[in-house]
Each structure stands twice: as structure tokens, then as C-alpha cells.
Amino acid sequence: MIFDLFSKRQKRLRGEVPEIFTYDHIPDNLRVQIVHIIDDVIGAERFASNLDPDDIYSTIHGILCREYGVFRLWGKYEKEKEQLFNYILKAKLVEEVLDAVDLTFKYFLSVLKPSYLNYKHNTTSKLDPDAAIQELNVRFKENGIGYSFEGGEILRIDSTFMHKEVTQPTLSLLWNNCLLR
């Protein structure tokens, strides 16, 4: 959930909102916000089920490690959840942070969304995948970051008009056609 805090309203009144997107830096506060979003979606286990929050972290961690050719994302003795979060918080390359975010949100769409009601019942999840994607995109925009999660992947937004008028409808059409097959 996004709150329109007093400080945000004041920044808008002063014209201190970013109008130009940045692509080569992800601020620390945005990284923390992303970790909060992920944690709110995955939650913790309440009842045993076939989809366990620890398994989700383990799956995401395992995929990233395999793709990068490493055994651990971060730290020596941390669980997969902490490794993923520390990686998002501390990775130096923007593309690597976005790899972790992109993969995690793809997982939300493909695995959690179809069975979210059951998942929510068995966990402490507070945020459904669609709401998480909406919040992620708002947070990107609030921070002037030129990326958006659309059509099942993170995309670079070079032109807001072109993205809104051409790219989004096209991706939506393609995504819906893929789901129907």
C-alpha cells in the first residue's frame, strides 16, 4: 500500500518530482521498498502446504546462482531469503538488482498468482501479486527510475508516451494471447 505522505505532497508542490528517468542507479530507499514488497507478497508460513515461503526464496536464489555461476548470492551463512534481500540491497550493478526483481516478480505472476487465495490462507502474505506489481511500478516512478514491470518482465521506459500508447497495449495483447494457449 502506498501512502501519500506529507513530504511527498510538499515535494510535488515544490516541483521536486523527477521528470527525467534514470537508468544507471537504483537508490537505497527504493531497494528497501522493493524488499518490503517482496516480503509482503511471500510472507511466512502459517500452515503447511505444497507452496512454502522458504521454498520460494530457495527457488529464486537457486535460479540466480545457477545463472551467475555462483553458489551463494551474498554472505556466507545466511538463509536464501536474507541472501536475496542483501543482494537486492547491496549489489553494485543495476542490471543485477533488476535481474533479482524481474525473476521474483515473474515467479509471482507464474506461480503465486494462479493459486494466490490458497497461498494467502496458508501464509502471512499481505499483498497479492497484481498489487505488488502496481506498487513496484509506482515506486520506480516516484524515484525517477526508468523501468517498469509490464507484460511479465522489467522493461526500460525510454519514452513514456511511446510506452503507454504503443508498448503497453502490445505487451498486454501478447501476454493475454500467451495465457490463452
Rank of each mutant, 00 (worst) to 15 (best):
F3N: 12
D4C: 04
F6S: 11
Q10S: 13
K11M: 07
K11Q: 08
E16D: 14
T22E: 11
T22Q: 13
P27R: 09
R31C: 07
R31D: 01
I34M: 10
H36T: 13
D39F: 05
D40A: 12
D40M: 12
A44Y: 10
A48P: 01
S49I: 05
D52C: 12
D54W: 06
D55W: 08
T59V: 14
H61I: 06
I63V: 14
L64M: 11
R66S: 04
R72A: 00
K76Q: 13
K76E: 13
K76S: 14
E80M: 01
K81D: 08
Y87R: 03
L89D: 08
K90G: 13
V94K: 05
L98D: 03
D99K: 15
V101I: 13
T104I: 15
T104L: 03
F105K: 07
Y107E: 07
F108V: 02
V111P: 07
P114Q: 08
Y116P: 02
Y119K: 11
Y119E: 10
H121D: 12
N122H: 13
N122G: 09
K126G: 11
L127M: 02
D128T: 10
D128E: 14
D130P: 04
A131I: 00
A132F: 01
Q134S: 08
E135A: 02
R139K: 01
R139S: 00
Y147K: 06
Y147V: 02
Y147F: 15
Y147A: 05
I154R: 06
I154V: 15
L155M: 10
R156Q: 15
I157V: 14
T160I: 13
T160E: 11
F161S: 15
H163C: 09
H163M: 11
Q168S: 14
L173C: 07
L174Y: 11
L174N: 01
N176V: 07
N177D: 12
